[in-house]
């Protein structure tokens, strides 16, 4: 993002894949160009949610991920997002840091579990602050969490499905929770920088990436879950992914505009009440 901003006049990056809220913040700074969807042959095969995720055709979603709680099935069971702050996980739970993409998703689900007003996270952050001593740490990367859980420092934490294979391969019994409030979800998108001069090549790459064949291959390699509805994978592969219309349509997705509008306020409150 810093590179795209620094080289706005003479882009060194023509096309990029980033989170939907990062895409929206670049779009608002007029650094992106609208994508001509007629040049993407696979466009109509994408899930509706992926076709125009941030408005004005500024981005196209290429992968979804569910986000839920991974936990040690031999030690605890997870029914609700509220369990994260409950008695049974005290001193054994980690949360994603507010600055990453997973942090706001966890806030959203905790807020929903408490019956709070959608998008109003102040009460949720305060609740986390009250339990700050019970939380082992706030992780920044899913790999860091995988390490903590394999070390048995942590027995439950919210994480994106893209990291699930790290846990599945562990000798410890890890399970993926299906809380009653549902799973959170997010999307990564493709964007094109304004006036980059390499539009033809960029469209070619995007078209290739979104095609049924390539999306299937990427899914089979367990890299990203498909956004193309025609991708078919075996049950075994699907197990590792965020796959299928039913699941994708059930995800709780946080509006990128809400994230951009509130992130600074969240971070400040988080720093003052949670990390201290």
């Amino acid at each position: 993002m810093a590179k795209i901003e620094a080289n706005a006049a003479d882009p060194v990056i023509d096309m990029a894949v980033i989170s939907s809220h990062d895409a929206l913040s670049l779009a608002r700074k007029n650094l992106l160009q609208a994508i001509d969807t007629s040049r993407l042959q696979s466009f109509d095969k994408l899930y509706t949610a992926a076709q125009d995720p941030i408005g004005d055709n500024m981005a196209v979603g290429y992968t979804f991920y569910a986000s839920s709680i991974v936990y040690r099935s031999d030690l605890v069971s997870i029914e609700s997002w509220n369990d994260l702050l409950g008695e049974k996980l005290a001193d054994n739970v980690a949360l994603p840091n507010i600055t990453g993409t997973q942090g706001p998703l966890t806030l959203m689900m905790l807020n929903k579990a408490e019956g709070g007003k959608p998008g109003e996270f102040s009460g949720t952050i305060s609740a986390i602050g009250k339990h700050a001593d019970d939380i082992v740490t706030f992780y920044s990367r899913s790999s860091e969490l995988a390490q903590l859980m394999n070390q048995e420092e942590v027995i439950a934490a919210p994480v994106g499905r893209f990291a699930w294979s790290r846990f599945k391969s562990s000798p410890l019994p890890f399970a993926w929770a299906e809380p009653k409030e549902g799973q959170a979800g997010g999307m990564n998108v493709m964007i094109m920088t304004a006036n980059n001069g390499n539009e033809d090549l960029a469209y070619k790459l995007m078209d290739y990436w979104l095609s049924t064949e390539v999306q299937t291959r990427i899914a089979e390699a367990l890299i990203d879950s498909p956004a193309n509805t025609e991708v078919k994978v075996s049950d075994e592969v699907a197990e590792n992914l965020t796959y299928g219309a039913e699941l994708i349509n059930s995800l709780n997705i946080l509006d990128p505009a809400v994230i951009i509008a509130n992130r600074d306020v969240w971070v400040e409150q988080w720093n003052n009440e949670v990390i201290r």
Partner: peptide, 20 residues
């Protein structure tokens, strides 16, 4: 210490790499 027990050095790193 991680992100819960920040010291000035780790805070500096965060300021650069997380919040620019």
């Amino acid at each position: 210490g991680g992100s819960k027990v920040l010291m000035l050095e780790t805070l500096l790193y965060q300021k650069v790499n997380v919040s620019n």
